[in-house]
Simulated scan of single mutants.
Amino acid sequence: MNFKDIILLLHPIIAVTVVFPLIGIVLNRALQVRQRRLETIATGKSKIPPVAGQEHTQLGRWLTGSVVGIVLIALAYAIFSNVFENQVWLKSSFQVIFIVLIFAATIGSTILLYKAKANDKKWRGVFATLTGMGLVILGCQDGVYRLTDKWYMSHYYYGITAALLMIVSVAILPEIYKDKSNVWRKVHIAANCLALLLFFGLGVTGTLSLLELPLNWQKGYVNQLYQKQCEVNPCVITNPAIPDKP
């Protein structure tokens, strides 16, 4: 594998070693927090320590940052691979500069969202919106494997939607503790339940994407096979015959 292949695999590596373990831990802490709340209401005390709530909040923020980070890594690989392969900077230098600025603005907005104080409701909304807009704009660039005609099994659409839901969860987090009617808590639970389902879908669609996007050393063979098969039948590609060893 060359350096480009390593960058391609960086996204699934971080997802498997960081994001999905964090999802399990955050879900565990969320269930503990809910159980503690119910036990406290029922009996006035609970065996679950209060620190479970703090851990859930902190790990949830780490999870959101990790999700946004790996989405940006995947988008950067796809976009800049297209830029270098098609020499986009020679045809439209402004487009390349615009893309770089959007990346910088998205990263900056994410950092500022995390630094926004609990009483800065307006700024949290602004930075969350800018972060989400940045991800969507970058996802619309050439080179991104979107699979729009089969959106229901698209790794891109699952990932972008999950990232947007996580960003919303971080933005509304301080409101959960201020709202006595539990409306924001219910929004938080609904958004994260949907995100959890999307993460399960990402495990499936991510595996499919790894099979559909060949590594650099495989591209020549795959393209050659595709071209030969399409001369006969544009819609069917069969496995190549492997000769027996002498």
Rank of each mutant, 00 (worst) to 15 (best):
Q32W: 09
V33Y: 04
F199V: 13
Y177D: 14
S169M: 13
Y157E: 07
L173I: 04
A78K: 01
I23T: 03
K117R: 06
I23P: 01
D5G: 01
L213P: 00
H188M: 05
L210N: 11
V51P: 00
T207D: 15
W123S: 14
K47P: 00
L101V: 12
V183Q: 06
I73D: 06
Y226H: 06
I97T: 15
K115R: 09
A15Q: 03
I7F: 15
R146T: 07
D120V: 03
L130H: 02
Q32C: 11
V51F: 09
N216Q: 15
N28W: 14
I6K: 15
L164S: 04
A116G: 02
K117W: 01
F127N: 06
E212K: 11
W217V: 12
T64G: 10
E175V: 07
M166N: 05
V222G: 05
V26M: 04
K186N: 13
I242Y: 05
P174M: 12
V88Y: 03
K4G: 07
Y177V: 13
A118H: 11
R29V: 03
G65T: 14
F20N: 06
I7H: 08
N192P: 08
A74R: 00
K245Q: 14
I41Q: 14
I172W: 08
L59G: 04
L173Q: 15
C235R: 11
P234R: 09
N82W: 12
K115M: 10
H56V: 02
L208N: 10
Y221N: 13
A76N: 12
A52L: 00
L72V: 10
L135G: 06
R34T: 07
S209P: 02
I242E: 08
Y152M: 11
F98A: 05
P50F: 04
I14N: 05
Y152L: 10
S154H: 03
V19K: 01
V187G: 01
L138F: 02
R124Y: 08
P21G: 07
L198D: 00
L10F: 15
G220N: 08
V67F: 02
V236R: 05
H56F: 14
K186H: 14
A241V: 15
P234C: 00
G125D: 05
R146M: 07
N82G: 15
N82I: 03
Q87S: 14
V51S: 14
P214H: 11
K245G: 03
L112V: 09
R185S: 14
I7Q: 08
V33T: 15
L22T: 02
G159M: 04
S154W: 02
V168K: 06
V33E: 15
H188N: 00
K186P: 06
T148M: 08
T129M: 15
A76I: 06
F94Y: 08
L147E: 13
K245M: 15
G220Q: 07
I167P: 01
P50C: 08
I23Y: 03
F103W: 06
V170H: 05
K219N: 09
C230I: 01
V71R: 01
T110C: 10
Q224S: 11
A171Y: 02
G125P: 12
L10M: 12
L197H: 03
Y156H: 15
F80Q: 00
V67N: 05
P240R: 04
H11C: 07
T57L: 13
N82H: 15
S92V: 03
G108I: 04
R36C: 05
A118Y: 05
